[in-house]
Amino acid sequence: MVPVLLGRIQTRIFLLAVVGSVITALITPVLPGGGPLADRYRTAFVVLGAVAVLGVAWELLYHLLMQFRWEKDWPSLFGLLTGVPEAVVLWLLLRAGAVPGVETAPPVAAFVLQFAAVWTAVWLAANGPMRVPFLRWRFRGGRLT
């Protein structure tokens, strides 16, 4: 991908909101953990929201790092692997109780499964299918507006 900064942020928020929400809605009931389903949904969607909000800061960092690349591109592999540090940082914040709306962190397995499923689906969508409805998206550095 060859994103511009605004395109990175817009694409992340859009895909997490659309693809991320669908995946979260589908996967939450089968994730490990107890408690009422409504509470689990609440936690799962707060986690999803946190990926989007923290992601704005992450995108600033990625944009800075991209400047050292002559092509000013962001290879697909980077888009996939950056999920690892993002997940780790988010997990630490959840454990520390620093994410508003989540008092106790979800079980680690539930978090990892949800994060991995959402991240992979968003990454796959960004690497192809996104171009089908949004014909101009790839030529605008990922901007939707």
Partner: peptide
């Protein structure tokens, strides 16, 4: 450079 087709250089 790749960003000519949609990224920073194009912009």
């Amino acid at each position: 450079p790749k960003s000519v087709w949609g990224g920073q250089l194009k912009a």
